[in-house]
Amino acid sequence: MVRKYAALLRMKYMEMLAYRLATIVWMTGAITQPLITMAVWINIDPSQSDAFFFYFMAVIFVERMTSAWDVWELDREIREGTFSNYIIRPLHPIHWAIAENVVYKLLFLVILIPMWAGAALFVPALRVEISMSQLLLFLAAVLMGALLRFLLSYTCGLLGFWITKVAAIYSVLEVISLFLSGRIAPLSMLPPLLQQWSIFLPFRYMIGFPIDLISQAANGHEVRQGFMIASVWAVIFIMMLQWIWKAGLKKNQAVGG
């Protein structure tokens, strides 16, 4: 397994290098929406400018680290029939996706962390003072967020065995997550009802929760509760994924030749 992964990772790394320009453009593409939202909030409450600035920079960082694009890939591959190439191989296709995620996200990490550190030298609002254990908790939460988003996206993608419009379904989920994950507003600014929902739904743990950890907005009890709910969702997603995968293979009729 280790050797297989080494090969997969190397392959995906090469692939990424081959599409350098696309990778860079794609990486910077997702930053305008948080920046605009930040402008709105700073306009609403100028006295909190620094806090909002920190929050939305963290949104950009966590969003990049947890982003999942597998649903679009799967949607296309299943529809065009090229997914069959993966099915007949002796390794579960999900490993290709996992390797791809690892490679891209490591790249993001390697680029974004020094950028943040460099910016923090000049912008005091970006400085974080936390202990090592808190930092580890934050990274664990980011990893958990990445896992949840990946599982959700991959599961949705597999629905492509039955329906042709999975991308549309996933966009609806993305939009719901816009509110409940904390991208439109820090969750504490939402109406109480939405706040309550966000605790029990998976979306908060994809973006908002890690940010709460790094900005130290969550206390010990909330942190434990957060990790617990997130793990429950991860288990649910994994079970769904396995079930849909098995049922989907039976249903699959490779399109094209």
Partner: peptide
Amino acid sequence: LTIHIFFYQTDRL
């Protein structure tokens, strides 16, 4: 809904 959320905290944008 987004506009609503902003105006939940303010009355001018």
